[in-house]
Design a protein around this nucleic acid. Sequence first.
DNA 1: CACCCCTCTCAGCTGGTTCTCAGCACGGAC
DNA 2: GTCCGTGCTGAGAACCAGCTGAGAGGGGTG
Lengths: 225, 225
Amino acid sequence: MRVLVVEDEANLAAAVARGLRAEGFGVDVAGDGVTGLQRALSGGHAVIVLDIMLPGRSGYDVLRELRARQVWTPVLMLTAKDGEYDIADALDLGADDYLTKPFPFVVLVARLRALARRGSPERPARLVVADLVLDTAAHKAWRGETELALTAREFALLEHLMGRAGDAVPKSELLSEVWDENFAGDPNIVEVYIGYLRRKIDAPFGRKSIETVRGVGYRIDAAGG
Amino acid sequence: MRVLVVEDEANLAAAVARGLRAEGFGVDVAGDGVTGLQRALSGGHAVIVLDIMLPGRSGYDVLRELRARQVWTPVLMLTAKDGEYDIADALDLGADDYLTKPFPFVVLVARLRALARRGSPERPARLVVADLVLDTAAHKAWRGETELALTAREFALLEHLMGRAGDAVPKSELLSEVWDENFAGDPNIVEVYIGYLRRKIDAPFGRKSIETVRGVGYRIDAAGG
DNA sequence: CACCCCTCTCAGCTGGTTCTCAGCACGGAC
DNA sequence: GTCCGTGCTGAGAACCAGCTGAGAGGGGTG
């Protein structure tokens, strides 16, 4: 069972890592938010221990980004007790548990075990952006009351955009995530499919959910469009 | 519904596997205690049939280890009638039922069905979707008032689809759950059986319960159809 | 042994889906 | 306004997923 520890205080990080290894966990350590996010995205961890106060990107930020990218690995947040950061916010963002520093080591281990056992919650079956709804389990899509007839590829593309609603998603990311990691064909395929989508989900309803971000990619406004 | 059979007598194992497949179960076979334990831990089985006398690790051992690792899949133990091993011990260790060899095949099937039903509370004895009704214990199916004559395989397929009513069930999942974990044959078998089902449960009634989700699999609409 | 039923394989067909390509439109820089 | 780069779109080709009929193989039954 692998654990990712994202913590900038080197001493604490090392101590936690050593202790967890002794308990039989495999441990990865990241010293700042950016590398922490990378490691977390690469996946394979049963639990993530995430400090809130971090150089680079805060723990909040990392957590938000993770969930936005559909990564549902359980996260245990670490806070200093000075209360500058609100743990409630973290839980809102999708943290699964938290500990206030300093903490007894055994408590950390127990909480991690509990989180790991509980496992990663199912990814939400439903994506909602304004009156656009995707049911990923049923593979159905609606604009308001109207069901949309999307092909598999169109559905996958829309799913990815809605999963990162509010973000400008680079065309390269769409290519590698919706198509293939090493897609060899014409990258223009993304534009073609964006066109298909707009004709199905926007034009008939006089809407403009999918914005073009010139030179970057596309964005679905979190507030809807 | 997947069954794991842990049995070292190759003839018996093969006979049981064949018989269970004919009854519509997906069957995994392990020939000794060690691989049996591995398979069991990998999960996904509704029931485990476990011989006591095994090379490698005894059935006792495997059972103890399973329960120690918090795996609660129902287990049916097989014993030779010479009484060298005490079935009471097995029940103490957390076995759920037992059979003394030799046993009538129909008894095995009945016990397995009972265990599977009892074992997972979320698998009800009766599945209802609109006017489609499956009695999984009695192995009977109706559309409205009309009883349907389904073969074992057709029944298993319909059971799985109805158990996930509303979801688009991937073809790969159907293959591994209704057929076999490592089904080697032509995956087209799923389409063939979907065709059989439609001819029995839909066409005669002018209905369309089973929708094709192109590029994914099949779906039975929770609201019926 | 003959027959029937069930399971599964195979190959042909169909139409929707995916993708390529080429030309056009548009935005931004100067 | 002109030019260049980027994005949009229609047409059509290639492909492939899914459906079906035919039939082989095997087990069980009379």
